[in-house]
Structure formats: C-alpha cells, structure tokens
C-alpha cells in the first residue's frame, strides 16, 4: 500500500517580548519520511517582523539560529503543497523522531508586542493503518 501524506503541527506560545521558547515535538511512529515544514501564527504580522528560529531534527541542524521566520511563512495564495520548506528533496528519515524549534521574539519598530502563538506545520509520509 502506498504511503499517505499528511500534515501535523505543534504550537509554541510567546508570552513576553524578547524571549526564546523551545518547542519540542516527537515524530509519531507511523511516520516513514519527514518532508518539510512551514510556519504560521494567530498574529502573522508579529511572526513576520519579530520571529527568528533554529530548527533541528534527528540530531542535525536544518535551520541555523537567527534565520528569519518569514522565510518559512506563506500567504493563502500559495498552493497548499508548495508551502513547505523541504528537508532535502522531501524524503528525510525520521531517525530518532525528535524535532525541536527554538523560536526567538525580537523587537521591531513596525510592531508592538502582544502574546501570540506560532504554529509549526510538519509534513510527513505515513504508513496507513
């Protein structure tokens, strides 16, 4: 039976200006490949201007610290399956199944801080039950 593609997400809550929050995510056992990820927020303006991140999974760095979050955001007119930043050609092995995002909020003159949530969407191939 062919693998099935699906998207899961986890959320990082930013409660104070200038903080770094780590979101840790354990990749499910049914995952055969990790295809890529993207970011969204309930306050996309704050994510766009204020966010930087570091991402690693399976023990390897995939996004270096300080990379701007907007590089992984999409507007609604991007085709759904083009929204991810791919890991390799979209067929990374889940390995130890550990993914972590260190998200940092940075002051920006175009924004005033309010608490917001960052959603990390991750695309997978899974083996159907």
């Amino acid at each position: 039976m062919p693998d099935k593609n699906l998207t899961r997400f986890f959320t990082i809550n930013i409660t104070a200006a200038g903080i770094t929050v780590t979101g840790e995510y354990e990749i499910d056992d049914d995952v055969t490949k990790v295809k890529g990820f993207w970011l969204s927020s309930d306050r996309e303006d704050l994510l766009f201007y204020r966010g930087t991140l570091y991402l690693k999974f399976n023990g390897a760095e995939w996004v270096e610290a300080g990379t701007q979050a907007k590089n992984f955001m999409n507007s609604s007119n991007v085709d759904y399956w083009l929204r991810m930043w791919p890991f390799g050609d979209g067929t990374a092995d889940p390995g130890d199944q550990e993914m972590a995002v260190d998200y940092t909020d940075n002051d920006h003159p175009n924004t005033v801080f309010e608490p917001y949530s960052v959603h990390v969407f991750v695309e997978f191939d899974i083996t159907p039950p």
Partner: peptide, 10 residues
C-alpha cells in the same frame, strides 16, 4: 520575494 512564493522557491 513575497509570501506568495512557496519557501522552497524563494
């Protein structure tokens, strides 16, 4: 590039 381009194509 704007947000209307997918991240992998920017």
């Amino acid at each position: 590039f704007g947000l209307g381009i997918g991240p992998g194509n920017r």
